[in-house]
């Protein structure tokens, strides 16, 4: 567990994005950008994921899905909001069915703006997330130690 930040597993969920950012997230795992060089594996299983990449704003129906996926992920975990709609709602902000950014439903650690976010900035965001993951992990370990003593 101490080496968590060296091989995190990544989960991607499309809240209500236009596909643009989703495709770029998927693109990051292909040879050109190759996010796997950070030891990351793209998984489909929330129970084994450390990083949640989430795209698009949150609407009435996917709210419960997002909450459920977040609660299924083990601690420590980080959430990266990819794309401007995941950050604030973006162009969809005025729509009747959009509640706003992802942070209206679950806590977000890293915001990656852009419409669509470029793969370079997504990778940048994930690398930031790795640092936060390590900090969370250290804090978690410290709290465990102090509990014992």
């Amino acid at each position: 567990m101490a080496k968590l930040a060296k091989s995190p597993w990544l989960l991607h969920y499309d809240a209500s994005s236009c596909n643009g950012c989703d495709i770029e997230v998927l693109d990051c795992t292909t040879p050109r950008f190759d996010i796997e060089r950070f030891g990351i594996i793209n998984t489909g299983d929330p129970f084994q994921a450390d990083i949640l990449l989430i795209t698009g704003g949150v609407n009435a129906q996917c709210e419960s899905v997002v909450k459920q996926i977040y609660s299924q992920m083990p601690d420590p975990k980080v959430v990266v909001a990819v794309g401007i709609c995941a950050c604030t709602g973006g162009v969809f902000k005025d729509c009747y069915n959009i509640k706003g950014g992802v942070d209206t439903v679950i806590p977000v650690d890293v915001y990656v703006p852009g419409c669509a976010a470029r793969p370079q900035s997504i990778i940048d965001g994930v690398v930031k997330a790795l640092e936060i993951l390590q900090q969370k992990r250290d804090a978690f370990a410290r709290s465990q130690k102090s509990d014992k003593s």
């Binding site: 499309d14 209500s16 994005s17 698009g56 704003g57 609407n59 129906q61 996917c62 899905v65 162009v91 969809f92 005025d94 729509c95 009747y96 069915n97 959009i98």
Partner: peptide, 23 residues
Amino acid sequence: IGFVHRGLEKLVETKDFKEYVYI
């Protein structure tokens, strides 16, 4: 379906028709 429904068709009522191209 409905996980991605945003209601973009409704936005024509509040956005200028030239601006709506971007939506």
